[in-house]
């Protein structure tokens, strides 16, 4: 269970999130929906400790993370797949994946130091090209790589920011299936920022609707009605 209580978040002097409450139940998918520029990415960055300043509390399974630096949040089990993927173009695919594994330091078990076992299962293409630079991959393959990197952290919570944005249509479905499988088969708690309402509805168990940095609606996914969407997303 990941909870945010009355969270404010800032970039410099810009106040982006306002008193946001969010409950992310363990082992389920929580979809975050809302218009462009409403603070969805900022919400994920706030959970990772990547904004300039926050107020309020962020608690993961009873552990308060609000004052922890980013790397400790990662080591506490939160992995981040950012919007735009942010893989490192001149690192090899292997290095990009291994990079995620630094989050397993200090968890009292040996660092896997390599490729997490799930990767060959989910992304055979990456396994066949481990020594090529990440920058040569297509958008969809980079998205897979960013997910593989997050899995190397052996996380309990996965933050996914618009995983199908800007991706070739033939790979969109593949990525969507992987998101669903990671939750259903591996039991990962997932926070899914998603513009595609149909996918948010089919994959999510819960949702939160953001508008101008505030949570304006939240609950079981069945309560994400057309009326809500019409009011807060459709123009």
């Amino acid at each position: 269970m990941l909870t945010l209580e009355k969270v404010d978040s800032f970039y410099g002097r810009s106040h982006i999130l306002h008193g946001l409450d969010l409950a992310v139940p363990g082992g389920e998918i929580t979809a975050i929906v809302g218009r462009n520029g409403t603070g969805k990415t900022t919400l994920l960055k706030t959970i990772m400790g990547l904004t300039d300043r926050i107020g309020g509390r962020i608690v993961l399974d009873g552990r308060e993370l609000s004052a922890e630096p980013t790397h400790k949040r990662a080591r506490a089990g939160i992995a981040y797949v950012p919007q735009g993927r942010q893989i490192i173009p001149d690192f090899t695919i292997r290095e990009n994946i291994v990079m995620g594994g630094f989050a397993t330091t200090g968890r009292g078990r040996p660092r896997s130091g390599g490729i997490p076992p799930l990767v060959p299962k989910l992304f055979p293409y990456l396994m066949q090209n481990l020594d090529r630079p990440g920058g040569v991959l297509s958008g969809g393959q980079q998205q897979q790589l960013a997910i593989a990197r997050a899995l190397a952290a052996e996380p309990s919570v996965l933050l996914l920011d618009e995983p199908t944005e800007g991706i070739q249509p033939n790979i969109v479905e593949e990525i969507q299936n992987i998101v669903v499988r990671l939750n259903a088969e591996e039991g990962l708690t997932i926070v899914l920022v998603e513009q595609n309402v149909a996918f948010a509805r089919s994959a999510g168990h819960h949702f939160a609707m953001l508008e101008k940095g505030r949570a304006v609606a939240s609950g079981p996914i069945a309560t994400l009605t057309d009326e809500l969407i019409h009011r807060h997303i459709a123009v």
């Binding site: 990547l50 790397h71 080591r75 950012p82 490192i88 995620g100 630094f102």
Partner: peptide
């Protein structure tokens, strides 16, 4: 930022 988010 990404390095830190990877636990570095």
């Amino acid at each position: 930022q990404m390095a830190a988010a990877c636990g570095i």
